[in-house]
């Protein structure tokens, strides 16, 4: 009996709570309209996201291609880089295509590609200037025995002429005659 009364009281209190909540509830449209606007915005975003992602990927690929192509043009020409005199060596012209059968199997140089490389080098003259550059202190590197170091020694031959300090017998006789 007592238990039933308490349960009934609990039920009544819950119903009272329900009435209070329902009186403070927002209108259905007030809840639906923000949801609808979010739904519409979401639909727009669903279209925008893939487009943005595609643009970003395209930009990244473009940037990567630019960086890689820039590195390719900065690579110094080996013909110029190995020139010890500093003078720019004439560019080796692409050999004319060999019509003989022996050229089969040898990788052919694409003339169009060669031309592109040449034009790139023309566009960037600093590549040539770099090979002509000489150090301002290069003269300091010259030494008296430089010739000796640069030539190959031979048997029974001396590069250095050793002049005797003491006068020879002939010179003494000549001096005596003069006197």
């Amino acid at each position: 009996m007592e238990q039933d009364r308490k349960e009934r009281t609990i039920r009544e209190l819950f119903q009272q709570l329900r009435r209070d909540d329902e009186s403070g509830a927002p209108s259905f449209l007030g809840s639906l309209i923000p949801a609808q606007s979010r739904h519409e915005r979401g639909a727009w975003l669903r279209l925008v996201w893939p487009a943005t992602a595609a643009i970003v990927v395209a930009l990244l690929l473009g940037g990567a291609w630019l960086i890689l192509s820039g590195q390719d043009t900065k690579t110094p020409d080996p013909a110029n880089a190995l020139n010890s005199d500093g003078a720019s060596a004439p560019r080796a012209e692409a050999p004319p295509p060999d019509p003989t059968p022996s050229s089969i199997g040898v990788p052919k140089i694409n003339p169009g590609r060669q031309h592109r490389k040449q034009t790139r080098a023309q566009v960037r003259p600093e590549t040539l200037l770099l090979s002509q550059w000489r150090s301002p202190t290069e003269s300091l590197m010259r030494t008296p025995g430089e010739q000796l170091l640069k030539t190959i020694p031979r048997l029974n031959e001396s590069l250095i002429e050793i002049k005797p300090i003491a006068p020879t017998q002939r010179q003494i006789q000549q001096k005596d005659r003069q006197n």
């Binding site: 329900r18 909540d21 329902e22 509830a25 927002p26 259905f28 809840s31 639906l32």
Partner: peptide
Amino acid sequence: ELERHHRESYG
């Protein structure tokens, strides 16, 4: 249906 159950849903 959502409108019918709106108040209870809020609770």
